[in-house]
Design a protein around this nucleic acid. Structure first.
Lengths: 235, 235
DNA sequence: ATTTGTAGTATTGTCAACAATCTTCTTGAC
DNA sequence: GTCAAGAAGATTGTTGACAATACTACAAAT
């Protein structure tokens, strides 16, 4: 019998995630909430000891959780100085949005040119209709944001590029708060709705070029609105 | 005296990296070499204990090193099952190259439209000239690859988008072996050189649209060549 | 022959203690 | 008052031991 060249590999290998989150993942999820919601301010240090005490675990799992958050760009870990909540400058926010614009362009092109776009269209129509109804409402637009986030998750999954999904997911987490800022006025939401409606048309027509162009414009608009608000806050 | 609202933040904060790599980083670098060079085969398990013994450290730093490698997509960590060298399918390789194509497009547009492109052009001319001289040489093209990698690093840095630099760096690490495969014939290298020369023209002209288009095409060509070789190897 | 159960082993997950380093506070000189 | 040097405290880095889980091999039953 010949030696098995795959002896040092996993057996068939289930790709499914385990049913229960690991301890570091749970800790990371809790910390992630606080960072995104602003409970932890940008620049604030996150110290292993205090987190460990709060969750009643040792520092080991906390360290791993911080590494997970670093992977998502929510904290920055400096050797011998620990983790602090990332505090991107306006320029960096600009940069991240530029990347999102390109990758959203790819995503929406893949959808428009992909084989499953027909199945997707009805759901999109429904969600974008809801978007149009919610846009004009006064207030900060939390409901509108929720729909946009769900819509983005849906599309990112539908594109079928797993790595793209991972990267876009990570970038989305990093920019939620700025997206929220940028969509805080009804006028901006109206502009946003129009972008989504154009995208829907492009996808329905199977026009990849148009889908990419519109997606990029949508994120650039979102970027400009966010940066405008940020400058107002800073200056 | 009012409470200092920044009390829980770092002082001025040097952004520079420490002069000596941390232990986990050193371990990650060593393991990274082995994965990229193929010493560790795709799918192979990387067990904490054995790595720890080999480098004569405890498992803690090894675990952190594996997290670093996971961030770069070189290993996949499954809870309770440990780390294994990633073994992307042809479809996944395709996906990664698609992402690289988009982001290289952004990168080269930023350079073509950026203020520093004049300073960059002489260096580019020199490197691309060297590329042209090396392309026709027979053999696997290791020298050609080295120049391409250096050229890419240079451009990625010059684009000035830090997050883009990080993502492209990570994706480059993941695709080196496939890029190498795709550039293994002189004909392909000739095609590659032409792409680079076109890019140089676009950058010199400050034509962002053209730079983006050419960059995307270059990566797509690279992708197609790599995938063709992969299919030949697999089938 | 296939499946199921059950030890035994291997491997990852967690913890608490110690070491190394950084930060801050105090002291003293100019 | 400002700056430098040093001591004290706080925080991260590393280690080895133990716990929990997953894998392997073998036996027994269908």
């Amino acid at each position: 019998m010949p030696a098995n060249p795959a002896a040092d590999m996993f057996p068939p290998l289930r790709q499914s995630a385990p049913l229960t989150q690991s301890l570091p993942e749970q800790i990371a999820a809790r910390l992630s909430e606080r960072i995104v919601s602003g409970t932890y301010s940008p620049g604030q240090r996150v110290m292993e000891q205090s987190v460990a005490e709060e969750f009643e675990v040792s520092r080991g799992p906390v360290r791993e959780a911080l590494r997970l958050l670093e992977k998502d760009g929510l904290v920055m870990i400096l050797p011998r100085r620990g983790a602090q909540v990332t505090n991107p400058s306006i320029e960096e926010v600009n940069e991240i949005f530029d990347i999102r614009a390109m990758l959203n362009g790819l995503r929406d092109r893949l959808i428009a040119e992909g084989p499953h776009r027909a199945e997707l269209v009805p759901t999109l129509e429904l969600d974008i209709e809801k978007l149009a109804q919610t846009a004009a409402l006064p207030g900060p637009g939390d409901e509108y944001i929720d729909i946009v986030l769900r819509l983005n998750r849906l599309l990112t999954q539908a594109a079928g590029n797993h790595r793209l999904q991972a990267i876009l997911g990570s970038l989305a987490v990093q920019t939620v708060r700025y997206t929220r800022l940028g969509l805080s006025t009804p006028q901006r939401r109206q502009q946003s709705v129009q972008n989504w409606q154009s995208l829907l048309l492009a996808i329905r027509a199977g026009d990849g070029d148009a889908a990419e162009r519109i997606a990029r414009q949508r994120v650039i608009d979102s970027r400009d609105a966010a940066v405008q608000h940020l400058r107002a806050l800073a200056g």
